[in-house]
């Protein structure tokens, strides 16, 4: 964590563009990342009642690895397993950064 923190302070923060990953098929999730004035995580779906804290934690962990700020992330969960969730979030963030670089 310390290491990532260092990156955050020394590297200038990157801007992002809107991007998404995943689908709305059952057992998948659709993750959308958009630039926003304040950071935010929105978790939607039938599993919100039991997985809200878990999912926010996973999303925060992933976001902390990237030198970005002011991104809003929306997760529409259709019953995805944790690996799927992580993969979709990471991919969406990577795409958001990639789009900004171009």
């Amino acid at each position: 964590m310390k290491f990532h923190h260092k990156i955050r302070t020394e590297v200038s923060l990157l801007t992002i563009v809107a991007a998404s990953a995943g689908t709305l098929e059952s057992s998948d999730c659709l993750v959308t990342v958009v630039p926003a004035e304040v950071d935010g995580i929105r978790y939607e779906g039938a599993n919100r009642a039991i997985f809200l804290n878990r999912t926010e934690k996973i999303a925060r962990e992933i976001m902390e690895r990237y030198p970005i700020e002011n991104a809003s992330i929306r997760i529409q969960d259709q019953g995805a397993l944790e690996v799927t969730l992580r993969a979709r979030i990471e991919t969406a963030v990577e795409r958001a950064l990639e789009g900004a670089r171009q």
């Binding site: 039991i50 997985f51 397993l81 944790e82």
Partner: peptide, 12 residues
């Protein structure tokens, strides 16, 4: 239960 929760995560 432990094996499954490795995939699904533990519920809040």
């Amino acid at each position: 239960k432990r094996r499954i929760e490795k995939m699904t995560g533990r519920q809040d």
